[in-house]
Simulated scan of single mutants.
Amino acid sequence: MTRHFIRTATALTFAIALLHAPAATAAGQSPSAAPPQAAPLSAAITPQAVLAAMERVADWQLANPSRHRPDDWTQAVGYTGFMALAGVSNDTRYRDAMVRMGEKNGWKLGPNHYHADDHVVGQTYAELSIALRDPKMIAPMRAHFDDILANPRTGSLEFTVKGNQDRWSWCDALFMAPPAWLRLWSITGDKRYVDFAVREWWVTSDYLYDKDEHLYYRDSNAFAAREANGKKVFWGRGNGWVMGGLVRMLQYLPAAHPARAKFEQQYREMAARIAGLQQADGLWRSSLLDPASYPMKESSGSALYTYALAWGVNAGLLDRATYEPAVRKAWTALVGNVNPDGRLTHVQPIGLAPKVFDEQATEVYGVGAFLLAGSEVYRLARR
């Protein structure tokens, strides 16, 4: 079965590569006709259309793999999206690809022991362990996290201080690490994991969350920074990481947990603020409070917001009449950023602040965010 799957997947990858390869020209011969182009995707909010968009984007990514190391955060965010797709698709290829990835990684986290970015891959290991009832998939992560608990980092979250990235001192970290700790807790029942995740979340929040704006600074370097229009700098994707992280915490935090109400409060505050910053075309910009300085469409942060808002509607935490129109408008715009071949465009490259970038830019973490969004829009369409 495994050998058959590998042959099938290899054939699919080769076929897709051939479809998009330039036509070869032999000496003295005319160029062959260009290969037919895939039909544009439908932006309809129906289960079939949403799933078709998700699968085309996922298939493009599988056929055009990222060159980042397989346990890198960029890849690992992509894996979260593939797991979300596996949850709504009948095609087993997507989960099987994640199992192969885990086996190749030896089910280990990234090499930077304390760094949140190197913990995010553990979210996929844990979800696979839950689905397949295989404890070996979480064994290295458990040993890794046990060592962190035995040797915790303390001190300032000042981002410019060397070594302070060993704590969650930047807002992206709230997507990367704490949801992995909660997933491990849900499997093992070891209360230390949830206690650590919740405690450290609020340490970071107390430092980076602007309680007036209901938005997160990316890190301490942004405290004094101002946009061209004089407003504070709140990075689009950075706040998208937090919104996605809130969702992925709330998915596993029990209703009776003492911190549940506090998480829900922050989630609702941010959801209301983010919905009010949606632009006329349905997307959000790289700078939330100065979109005029960064007018380009941006897919990755927009997809994370779509994911978070759609999840809130589906979970009953957000009023459907208020938020569903924003979700529908956003999904339509995101599908518009997908080329016919499935390449997701308008993804801001790796960074830590608003920037201008090539509109054809793509990255695997943007694909992951798109698939996360699609999984919740798919569920919304089925209601």
Results as ranks from 00 to 15, higher is better:
residue 117 D to S: 15
residue 103 E to N: 14
residue 173 A to C: 12
residue 39 A to L: 11
residue 348 Q to G: 11
residue 180 A to F: 03
residue 70 P to S: 10
residue 325 P to Q: 07
residue 283 L to N: 07
residue 77 V to L: 12
residue 323 Y to Q: 14
residue 152 P to V: 05
residue 83 M to T: 04
residue 243 M to H: 03
residue 53 A to I: 11
residue 55 E to P: 01
residue 179 P to R: 04
residue 85 L to Q: 10
residue 277 L to N: 10
residue 352 L to D: 15
residue 167 R to Q: 14
residue 292 A to V: 07
residue 345 T to K: 06
residue 177 A to P: 03
residue 278 Q to I: 06
residue 379 R to E: 05
residue 379 R to Y: 01
residue 135 P to G: 13
residue 308 A to G: 15
residue 111 P to F: 01
residue 168 W to R: 00
residue 249 M to R: 00
residue 140 P to V: 05
residue 325 P to D: 12
residue 345 T to C: 13
residue 183 R to C: 10
residue 165 Q to T: 02
residue 22 P to F: 10
residue 171 C to F: 01
residue 24 A to L: 14
residue 95 R to E: 15
residue 131 A to I: 10
residue 243 M to P: 03
residue 74 T to V: 12
residue 362 T to P: 03
residue 29 Q to P: 00
residue 43 A to I: 08
residue 364 V to W: 00
residue 368 G to N: 06
residue 269 E to S: 08
residue 162 K to L: 08
residue 280 A to G: 07
residue 69 R to A: 13
residue 89 S to T: 15
residue 117 D to L: 07
residue 147 D to E: 14
residue 292 A to H: 07
residue 261 A to M: 03
residue 133 R to E: 14
residue 36 P to F: 05
residue 78 G to Y: 02
residue 331 W to Q: 13
residue 159 F to A: 12
residue 34 A to T: 12
residue 31 P to F: 10
residue 364 V to S: 11
residue 105 N to E: 09
residue 96 D to F: 08
residue 135 P to T: 10
residue 219 D to S: 02
residue 104 K to D: 06
residue 346 H to D: 09
residue 82 F to G: 08
residue 140 P to E: 08
residue 360 Q to A: 13
residue 97 A to I: 01
residue 368 G to C: 01
residue 368 G to Q: 01
residue 98 M to R: 04
residue 241 W to Q: 14
residue 103 E to A: 15
residue 48 Q to P: 02
residue 209 Y to G: 11
residue 100 R to H: 03
residue 144 H to S: 09
residue 71 D to S: 12
residue 267 Y to V: 13
residue 125 Y to S: 00
residue 184 L to W: 05
residue 130 I to G: 05
residue 73 W to L: 03
residue 152 P to S: 10
residue 204 T to N: 10
residue 173 A to I: 04
residue 339 N to R: 14
residue 350 I to T: 14
residue 294 Y to R: 13
residue 43 A to Q: 09
residue 4 H to M: 06
residue 281 D to W: 07
residue 199 R to G: 14
residue 127 E to R: 10
residue 249 M to K: 03
residue 293 S to W: 01
residue 91 D to T: 07
residue 305 Y to T: 08
residue 58 A to Q: 06
residue 187 I to R: 03
residue 59 D to S: 06
residue 42 S to T: 10
residue 342 G to F: 03
residue 110 G to W: 11
residue 138 I to N: 06
residue 183 R to I: 06
residue 259 A to N: 09
residue 284 W to E: 05
residue 223 F to H: 01
residue 153 R to Y: 00
residue 290 D to N: 11
residue 347 V to K: 02
